[in-house]
């Protein structure tokens, strides 16, 4: 019988690779009897959906209020201007 710690590991591993038949059966058996791990498994899937959705929509988790600092912007502008002169 798996512990919750082992089950949580297999639940996560299943999202990034493949479980052996034995691992799969052990996980199903544990989850069938353990409310906490059943919830954990379901929430991992939801977490994945949320992350992928964010990845597709804006490719970031940050709000649009997160912006480049003025200082960095000036520095980059300068570097671009110098390079543009050079490429002319």
């Amino acid at each position: 019988m798996l512990t919750c710690k082992e089950a949580s590991f297999l639940a996560s591993k299943e999202m990034d690779g493949t479980l052996s038949w034995r691992e799969k059966m052990a996980l199903r058996l544990h989850v069938g009897m353990c409310d906490m791990c059943r919830r954990y498994l379901r929430d991992l899937k939801r977490l994945r959906v949320m992350m992928r959705r964010a990845g597709i929509v804006g490719q970031t988790l940050l709000p649009t209020t997160a912006t480049l600092s003025e200082k960095a912007r000036e520095r980059i502008k300068q570097a671009l201007n110098n390079a543009a002169q050079f490429h002319k």
Binding site: L61, A66, T67, S69, R75, I76, L80, H87
Partner: peptide, 29 residues
């Protein structure tokens, strides 16, 4: 700003994100 947000989400450090943005625009040029 959008590129900066992309970078900082992944590298976490503001200076590093700005550096990557600069390298990107120079390479694009």
């Amino acid at each position: 700003d959008a590129l900066y947000r992309y970078a900082i989400t992944r590298v976490r450090d503001p200076d590093l994100a700005a550096d990557l943005l600069q390298d990107t625009l120079l390479a694009a040029l």
